[in-house]
Amino acid sequence: MVRRPVVKKEYTLGERVYLVEIGKGLGLTWKHFVYNVKASFRKGPHTVPTCWQYPEDRREIAPIFRGAHMLQLNEKGQELCVGCGMCARACPAKCITVKRGKPAEGEEDKYAGKTMCASFEIDMLRCIFCGNCEKACPKNAIVLGQDYELAEYDPNLCIYDKKRLLANFHRAKAEGRLKPPRKPVPVDAPAPKKKTPSKATMTKKKGESGDSEKA
């Protein structure tokens, strides 16, 4: 059988009477109610206690939010993607398929690189919006934009092709929601030493094969 420690219920008078605490709780909810009513009359930007009236009043989205993808163009209007397929390789969900192609005769100035992507498909239903493709892209061609209204009746419509990804970019550009270029992460060269090393990295043995002693 299970052993259980014996717990004595010791209540103070206020707790025993129990209406006191209930009254306190009710007072608190009323305070919230009054505060919310007041806040709803307040002008200016949205304040927290009222809810976001979604279709009309949209919440401010972080510029780095990972939403629907887009294929970027550079300032000259040239496609940045060269079809290298790094994003497809980095994707954990394997939802990107890229085909590399050469631009047709006379269309070379439409593309920034010497090659281009002949087709670019993202299965949005598979995508988990982790941003690995964005990190892997050497040309900063594919980025995750701010669009989050992605629901569709038909699952086939959720497979975004190149046209749609470029359209995403044009729409974002028109609305001024382009993703800011990522800041370079300061990488340390000689490590500034921590005063007290954590236990996790106490012993540093490099290049030691793990199973050497077992054999």
């Binding site: 992460v185 990488v187 340390d188 490099k206 290049g207 030691e208 094969s209 793990g210």
Partner: peptide
């Protein structure tokens, strides 16, 4: 610095 330099393809030693 925010990052330690790590190779792009991480291949840890056996262990």
């Amino acid at each position: 610095p925010l990052m330690k330099k790590v190779p792009k393809i991480i291949k840890p030693p056996e262990g």
